[in-house]
Amino acid sequence: MLIRKNISLDDKYLKKLQPLLDANDGNLSAAVRDTIEIADTALTYHKSIDEAIKFLKETPAKEELSDTIKNGENTIINRTMLEWLFRYTKGRLTDEELVNELINPFEISDMKELEDYLNQISKNYQWTIRTSIKCEDIHNPDSALLLLSNSTINSREFFAQLIAHFLARWKQLDVEHIFRRANSTQISFKKNLSVSQNETMPGIRKHFGYLDIVCRELDDNTEFWTQLMYTYNVERYNLVTLHRTQFETFAAGEVPNPTKILERLCKQSVNEMALPDLLMYFRKMYLATQLVKNIEIGLEPGDESVTIFHDFKNEKVINSLVEYFSKIFREQGTPFVTSSYSSMIVFRFHKEHGPADSSDLTGEEEFKELDFFSKE
């Protein structure tokens, strides 16, 4: 039975019907019938028209992804396995080739294009990561704020590192701060022109590559580090790390000067360091050597101090330890007083307010070193 009804359509819907009108030689009734058939088929497999439209919009990207899987460009991996890989490769830097494989620098000229490009990549690979970039100058920003939302924290961490490498290479932006939350990761970037393009930005190494040197050493000297870690574990870390020449000096009954080793590690002369910086480097280095049990530092201006806890019993050894550490602080130049007890050594630093000609004194004479050993 044929029923005639009038329908009203504005231009935007007529334009959408145009392909069907062309297919039916301009017959509007036939075009509407085809539209109804399409809608009926869509609702057979989907709960609503909106769901069907969403599916149809995503189909080209899925088909493209399927083609890349067939030709070997991409592969399918279980999500749990992928999360495991992301979690246990954290702290390692990715290669530049991998960054360029995912983010083509020749398709991006400004930060807005980068944002759109990243969201399209996420959509194509079905990562569900949403990217938002804020900056004042999209062409040459001095700073930028990156927000990654959705997906898992490990997925966002990996994606964030790729973006950070790209921004470092092409915009000279370095990571300043990272704020990690359950459903989002926020990263602030700041321009850094002091690092060449062939070097890794310090912020990237700090936040994303903190295990990179360790892992490379493990890869290059696996047998050595495996045995060393096994030994440390068996001995419950009751081992001391000491430079070979310093061990030789100690074994000869003398006290070596550790200043040069500290300077090489800090890449700065001790006498050029501010006292608070030196104390922080000192604590970090000598806790790692296991030479002492613990180190506490006080950084209040004008009242800086270092308290070293140890478990040595031999008085001669303790005296040598006091002299060993004193050589570093003498080199720095701030006067100090030393107090030594049965299991603790304290260095207290103070600014001298002597006469104007006090600078004529030698460095050794500026120090007051008092040793007090409690008798048990």
Rank of each mutant, 00 (worst) to 15 (best):
T75V: 15
I69A: 13
A31F: 10
E101I: 03
N78G: 08
I108V: 14
T94P: 01
G91S: 06
K70E: 15
T59A: 08
S48W: 05
T68V: 13
D67V: 06
E58V: 02
N78L: 11
I103F: 04
T35F: 10
E73N: 11
P60Y: 01
E58Y: 04
D50I: 07
I53P: 02
K90T: 06
I49M: 14
S29T: 12
T89F: 01
R33V: 09
A61D: 11
D34T: 10
D67H: 13
V32L: 15
K62R: 09
K57W: 00
E83F: 05
T94Y: 07
M111S: 05
E96Q: 15
I38V: 14
Y88A: 06
A31S: 11
L65Q: 09
N74Q: 13
T44R: 14
G72Y: 08
S29P: 00
L43S: 10
L28C: 05
D40Q: 14
I53L: 10
E96P: 02
E107K: 15
V32P: 03
K90N: 09
D34P: 00
N74A: 15
T89D: 03
S66A: 12
A52N: 04
Y45K: 10
S48G: 05
A31E: 05
I53W: 00
I77C: 09
I103V: 07
E83I: 06
I53N: 01
L56R: 00
D67E: 10
